[in-house]
């Protein structure tokens, strides 16, 4: 009971000791499994979201399907995928990609809806053809809203990766199972701290990206 809450010597020994459970290795895996779903999700959400914004009738059914997927327990998705992709990172990345779609598709649709009608009309009247109008007018104006969705999806994904520990692919989540099994709190605290740091860091990077990409965005200026 006089065991300290955090044993720093354990952290030092396990940071980079070459084992597959070294904290650094787990952190790297965690980053890959957290960011890949957001990247793939964005690549899928762009065409799907644009289609939903263009043909509004699609949006309702697409949202319904996405919400059902979102409601599905990740464990259930893992067990379905296990027979196909086995105990690999892919088994974690696929469900998280689907989860991120539930956030990113509405973000793309909302982003396109955020383009003021008079701006779209004036683009048409200036003589933009549809593809150029999409690339040079609509998507740039949709960017702040889409990026807000990317921030939510990224933070959610970083936190959700740990569930993969149940199939031995949880990145930093492995520290939780390890800690619980041994009734040893240091790995658990290290896991929580690194996941929170990762989430905050990623969010800050995305905010910086947003300022860089959209210097015209009214929201962050008082002028």
């Amino acid at each position: 009971m006089d065991e300290p809450l955090v044993r720093w010597d354990w952290i030092a020994r396990n940071w980079d000791n070459g084992s597959p459970l070294a904290i650094r290795t787990l952190l790297e895996n965690h980053v890959v499994m957290a960011f890949a779903p957001v990247l793939f999700g964005l690549l899928l959400a762009l065409p799907i979201g644009l289609a939903c914004a263009r043909w509004r009738l699609l949006y309702q059914p697409a949202t319904a399907v996405m919400n059902i997927v979102y409601a599905m327990p990740s464990l259930a998705l893992f067990s379905i995928l296990l027979s196909v992709t086995g105990l690999t990172q892919t088994t974690v990345i696929i469900p998280l990609t689907l989860f991120s779609l539930a956030v990113l598709i509405p973000a793309v649709v909302d982003g396109m809806t955020s383009v003021p009608d008079h701006v779209r009309q004036s683009a048409v009247a200036m003589g933009f053809r549809p593809l150029r109008r999409l690339l040079q007018v609509e998507l740039p104006i949709a960017t702040p809203v889409v990026l807000a969705g990317v921030r939510v999806a990224t933070v959610a994904s970083i936190s959700l990766v740990s569930v993969g520990a149940l199939i031995g692919q949880g990145g930093l989540g492995a520290l939780f199972t390890d800690g619980w099994q041994r009734q040893f709190y240091t790995p658990i605290i290290v896991g929580i701290a690194l996941i929170v740091l990762l989430a905050v860091g990623a969010d800050l990077v995305l905010i910086a990206l947003q300022r860089l990409l959209t210097p015209w965005s009214r929201a962050r200026r008082s002028a």
Binding site: H118, V119, A123, A125, P140, I141
Partner: peptide, 10 residues
Amino acid sequence: IQQAGLFPHR
């Protein structure tokens, strides 16, 4: 047009 319809990002 009425609200000028300027491109906010340019």
